[in-house]
Design a protein around this nucleic acid. Structure first.
Lengths: 222, 222
DNA sequence: ACTATTTTTAAAGAATTGATAAAGATTTTG
DNA sequence: CAAAATCTTTATCAATTCTTTAAAAATAGT
């Protein structure tokens, strides 16, 4: 299950995408006007689908802009099927280029392949000097072969999010948005309290990976 | 530049691959008989290209076997262009499926896209001779791979502003306005004090990029 | 030597974080 | 289905850190 952003000026195409990928359990956010892409909270998407030919904004230019601030797979989904367009698309930083008319099965398979790859890479990389995440059982193990830390769902989610973006600083709002979605309006103290509780549990095991960056937020540093 | 393994029973195709990708500086190892794939040293390949229909061994089965012990991108390159074959190919663990006859440009673009993704830059940075800014984590690192300088929010903001406009001189008022907005009425000493504190921290690391332009203001010069 | 400007010092004021505790949700258990 | 346990969110306040200010000392230019 993944968060997917789909941008296309044709509502019919958006509906198909939403239908096809929804069946696989993904949450699809459909945007018809590329100018309305949420600037904040882009980080919470696991994959982005883009049309090339849209009014108001060129898909290639949009891809370049998105790529500058986003790390997830970007896939073009377009009627422009000539090879030079494909090359141009991939060179703007996209990861795949699917020609219309596309089959539902191909769309599903390609989206799955890209998502699978993300987890494949992350699985290997989510081990640190002082601890490692067991991503399938959603547990954090401090040290070597010890018992898993007894974190709650939210606490684990915060840890995994910060750890996946090791070194990067996030504000409390950003953390909340990335974990609970944009809708949830929360006070700063929510995340602050979670962080405090996480630190209490990890400190008890002699592990302190969450650093405060004063005035900005928190980061995972191990 | 990458190590690429290409498996295809047709020598002509292998030659084309070797020629096309060789021009991009990649080292292509060509294997005509899938049974001869080196069991050892598979990990040294950054990307694998597979044919589907080969004598002696099915490409899909081969992909599954490879995927079990290898983490790099696997791309099918095949004449079987129907959708169900594509879906089957991606489901065996491959990352892409390119139909023959393929254009040289498409092959290059797709291979580059997959390699690029492996090493995708997670942090946007602003680099100078003696230091670089990690813009995503809002940190200034002096020298090569050293620890980030411990700057406060305002101090970092001033540094980034001056650095972004390298060489340009700004008065204290201009600096204050650009960072805190027009509304903030501040005395000159506010910025002067910040500059002093920044210099103290950077001087301690043997780095002095902020120059005073007497009677005018300050500039970043590195 | 004089003046204007910058740098330093030191301390008051403002903002942010961390800790404590308790109310509101949710899930588990009997 | 209700009670109990657990988790999430909120409010409040102390502790910490940062920002701003005022005034003295140092420095550059004329």
């Amino acid at each position: 299950m993944a968060n997917i952003l789909a941008v296309d000026d044709e509502p019919a195409i958006l509906a198909i995408i939403q239908n096809v990928l929804g069946k696989d359990g993904h949450r699809v956010t459909a945007v018809q006007d590329p100018r309305c892409i949420p600037a904040e909270g882009l980080a919470r998407y696991d994959l982005i689908l883009l049309d090339v030919m849209m009014p108001h904004l060129d898909g290639f230019a949009l891809c370049k802009k998105l790529r500058a601030c986003v790390d997830c797979p970007i896939l073009f989904l377009t009627a422009k099927t000539d090879e030079s367009a494909l090359v141009q698309g991939l060179e703007t930083g996209a990861d795949d280029y699917i020609g219309k008319p596309f089959g539902a099965a191909e769309l599903r398979a390609r989206v799955s392949a890209h998502l699978r790859r993300e987890t494949r890479e992350h699985f290997v990389s989510l081990a640190f000097a002082g601890a490692h995440f067991n991503l399938s059982s959603r547990q954090l193990v401090v040290g070597e072969g010890g018992p898993p830390t007894n974190l709650t769902k939210s606490e684990y989610a915060i840890c995994e999010f910060l750890a996946r973006n090791q070194g990067q600083v996030f504000s409390k709002e950003q953390i909340y948005e990335n974990i609970f979605g944009l809708d949830g309006a929360s006070s700063d103290t929510t995340i602050a309290t979670h962080i405090k509780n996480i630190r209490a549990k990890l400190d008890a095991q002699g592990y302190a990976p969450i650093k405060t960056v004063w005035g900005i937020g928190y980061k995972w540093d191990d």
